[in-house]
Design a protein around this nucleic acid. Structure first.
Lengths: 170, 170
DNA sequence: TAGTTATTATGAACAATTCACAATAAAAAG
DNA sequence: CTTTTTATTGTGAATTGTTCATAATAACTA
């Protein structure tokens, strides 16, 4: 039976390699930030499980640093999001999700049943959604597309439920 | 001097005509809902000022029904959103916004400086964003595009500020 | 190795929204 | 037109996700 996993990617990422951790260290320094165990642990946790909530991130980080506080994690998340080392996005009706994949204009598919999130590369060509028809004189910085739907697993479960209902009713 | 208006459209809509109110009445009945003064007042308020927050909506409705409560408005908003008489959307970092324009797959442009929201019709052709390249077997229901940027007014103010700074510095 | 200052921890506060239940009023039935 | 039924609204409180103010800590600098 397919289990419902909340805000978890289908292909979970690996543990961050030493090379990646070195890159983070450099990027933190480049932005005038200090390289703390907390920050690296937060980045690692999100790298391991993209589209994580703040809650999930603390839980994950606490395996390594049991005393870290929720508030510290929020501070780190906000700061790293500001310097574009993290991307934050907020699907309707759920807490904010974070990912380490930044700067590539990718979008998100969101299952309204199990709340799973998948990355989706840009639909047509390069960055079509950045050129809307009427733009009211606005200068656009980004265009985030949120695809809402039912994922394959959930669709299967729904189908099974309908079959089950019909069997009992007839 | 251009004033900063929060979550307000450039071309504000008119008061709802009698015809529109009749249509709302019918649609409420069609969905098995009762036609109450509160519901019509909420719809009218949102029709008058699309992209309104719950706060703004209560304020507006209270001009007509001074005793309506925040909670009642929330109940109405949730119910009318469920039956697609309202569309709710949640730009990052601000409370949810509501509009009466539904079922036409339009998108939103959001000024990150003054939080103004504008409607944007679909970018390329009919509904391009509904056909992403990889869809992970998901069945899509909707694709919401959020354009983030700086609106014309804000850009002008920023430019003026830069000019002012340069003048004092040199 | 000590000093400086960003970062983290502590504790509380906050805003937006939702909940449980009682009072009210729209619609249906008589 | 009146009564009955039940959705809808109002009352009051709770909850969730997040942010704030300030003290303690630890990374970097000299």
């Amino acid at each position: 039976m397919a289990t419902i996993q909340q805000t978890q990617t289908a292909r979970p990422r690996q543990e961050a390699t030493e090379a990646i951790r070195r890159a983070w260290t450099q990027e933190l320094r480049a932005h005038g930030r200090r390289v703390t165990r907390q920050r690296l642990a937060v980045l690692s946790a999100i790298h391991r499980a993209p589209h994580s909530t703040a809650d999930a991130i603390v839980a994950s980080v606490r395996e390594e640093l049991p005393t870290i506080t929720m508030q510290s994690v929020y501070v780190v998340l906000a700061d790293l999001t500001n310097i574009d080392m993290l991307r934050k996005f907020e699907p309707p009706g759920t807490p904010a999700l974070y990912e380490t994949r930044t700067g590539d204009n990718h979008h998100h598919a969101f299952c309204i049943r199990c709340l799973r999130v998948e990355d989706v590369d840009c639909a047509v060509g390069e960055a079509p959604c950045l050129i809307p028809s009427e733009h009211h004189g606005m200068t656009f910085i980004s265009a985030d597309v949120l695809y809402r739907g039912i994922c394959a697993d959930c669709q299967q479960e729904i189908d099974r439920e309908i079959v089950a209902q019909n069997t009992t009713l007839s």
